[in-house]
Design a protein around this nucleic acid. Structure first.
Length: 461
RNA sequence: GCGGAUAUAGCUCAGUCGGUUAGAGCACCAGUUUGUGGAUCUGGGGGUCGCCGGUUCGAUCCCGGUUAUUCGCCCCA
């Protein structure tokens, strides 16, 4: 018999981990609801046509494809087969794939259900996604995203709402983060200076690495890639980003002659409006207008957002990258045949948030609580009685278990301890005859014999 | 797609400069006279030392391959 194993990049979650994941999920979901978002779910499988071409070339390569059923090779082209041409063959044998994120499925959903949706459509979705990436620390092949998106509204106030959600959730989780913000239009404005959109795309890719390789690293890469005016543009961007107020940054952009065009004005107008709302909100976490933030996903067209942890309690060597991201995408539904629907959304990377909070030991201890009381029967004949007591406790909202056999008391109490229970109720001959129960506090060790009705009052804090 | 590291009990890991019965802690089971636990004690079960091949009288240990895991790079949550 083979040893059982898991596909790489996937994990089982035991009860202790699940309790904490549920705590995170609950916190995020409650916040989404508080902002008026409604849930949807979509299938794990999507048609590959839906997924392909939305995430850039790199993204396409990371799609998990699902082999067709039936005798698919019979229909395959002979040349392709004989040439062992994987790229040519794959469209012939795989029509479906696992979803890569929740945004593209949302766009498909909205297009298909446009008649039932009233816009602006505020939906949230918390489901696993899959990427055929090389697993490493903080990177899994199956991981959860928790998304909130607004579709069908251009208003920049939506961005303010979403930033506020980020702030609320991480405040509630007691994790200090920095929310980075930029606008694609501001970067688009650099197109002319860099002499072309291709250079601009490469430029954005390179400056996005600034956190990792620093100012000089990016400069070297720009030089190596021979981006026209790349160094000049980067030097300007970098120094401008150092300024501490958004107003100062926007002003500096206005003064830079090489980027004067309609893109720049559009971006500045949007951000000015956004900050006029955000100025009225009290945020607990740092919000940073960072012109070097580009973000990889190719469908963003407006604001882009990213959340990075910035909490002192995280061990210094625990580096894991961003734990959330989002932005505005103006044309995503158009690909599926619905024009003029702008979308904006954010995503929480549940698994990374878990890893961070675990590393900083910020999970509340009560996130682990499970069963409150164990009923221990001393012999088989008292088990039915134990069940009737359990039923009344459960009706009172107390999580109750009956130990399934009349095992030795030591064993039953060991079990209660292992599950972190607070109470044990012991029922034997003595209790049966008197109609009482021996109630033991497993933390203090105190115990007393009391009437069955009194238990509920006793246990409830 | 590229590079590094690792692979021994259910888990975390020792170890053998190549040599007879491969160890520890945790977990599990049993007992300490049959109704009192959360690090009492005693005992017990459990391993073709990842897989295939080579060197050798002899390989868990050395060498080659392979697979898996893991950490980086690319990219990303």
């Amino acid at each position: 018999m083979d040893k059982p194993s898991l596909p790489s990049g996937t994990r089982d979650f035991g009860p202790d981990v699940m309790m904490r994941r549920k705590y995170l999920i609950g916190c995020i979901e409650n916040t989404f609801k508080r902002y008026g978002f409604l849930p949807i779910e979509t299938p794990a499988l999507e048609n590959l046509r839906t997924l392909q071409g939305k995430y850039g070339d790199e993204g396409d390569q990371l799609l998990f494809k699902v082999l067709n059923n039936g005798d698919f090779l019979a229909k395959a082209d002979e040349k392709t087969l004989l040439n062992r041409d994987s790229k040519g063959l794959s469209p012939l044998i795989a029509d479906r794939g696992l979803r890569y994120d929740l945004t593209v499925p949302l766009a498909r959903f909205v297009v298909m259900n446009r008649d039932k949706i009233s816009f602006p459509f505020r939906r949230y979705q918390m489901q696993p996604v899959w990427r055929a990436d090389r697993p490493q620390k903080g990177r899994y092949r199956e991981f959860w995203q928790c998304d909130a998106d607004v579709l069908g509204s251009n208003g920049i106030s939506n961005e303010a709402d979403l930033i506020s959600i980020y702030d609320d959730v991480f405040s509630e989780l007691d994790l200090k983060v920095t929310i980075r913000l930029n606008h694609r239009r501001l970067l688009d404005a650099f197109g002319n200076w860099l002499q072309g959109t291709q250079n601009l795309g490469r430029f954005m890719q390179l400056i996005d690495k600034a956190d990792k390789i620093g100012f000089d690293g990016v400069s070297q890469e720009l030089k190596a890639n021979e981006i026209p005016n790349g160094i000049e543009a980067w030097t300007f961007l970098h120094s401008t980003s150092q300024m501490n107020s958004p107003a100062a940054i926007l002003e500096a952009l206005q003064k830079q002659e090489s980027i004067q065009n309609e893109h720049l004005q559009e971006g500045i107008a949007a951000l000015t409006a956004l900050f006029s709302i955000l100025d009225k909100l009290k945020l607990n976490n740092k919000l940073q207008l960072d012109l070097t933030l580009a973000r990889g996903l190719s469908y963003y067209t407006g604001c882009v957002l990213e959340v990075v942890p910035s909490d002192d309690r995280i061990p210094a060597d625990f580096k894991i990258g961003s734990i959330g991201g989002g932005g505005r995408y103006d044309n995503l539904t158009e690909i599926f045949g619905l024009k003029d629907v702008s979308g904006v959304g954010i995503s929480f990377g549940l698994d990374r948030i878990y890893d961070i909070i675990e590393s900083a030991q910020l999970f509340p201890t009560n996130a682990l609580e499970s069963t409150t009381i164990l009923i221990c029967a001393m012999d088989e004949t008292t088990i039915p009685h134990a069940f009737s007591l359990a039923q009344s406790l459960r009706k009172a909202g107390i999580a109750t278990e009956v130990y399934p056999t009349a095992a030795k008391l030591k064993k039953q109490l060991d079990y209660a301890n292992a599950k972190g229970m607070h109470w044990a109720a012991i029922i034997g001959d003595q209790e049966m005859q008197s109609g009482m129960v021996t109630l033991k506090n497993l933390q203090s060790g105190d115990q007393q014999t009391i009437g069955q009705q009194a238990i509920t009052e006793y246990i409830k804090p």
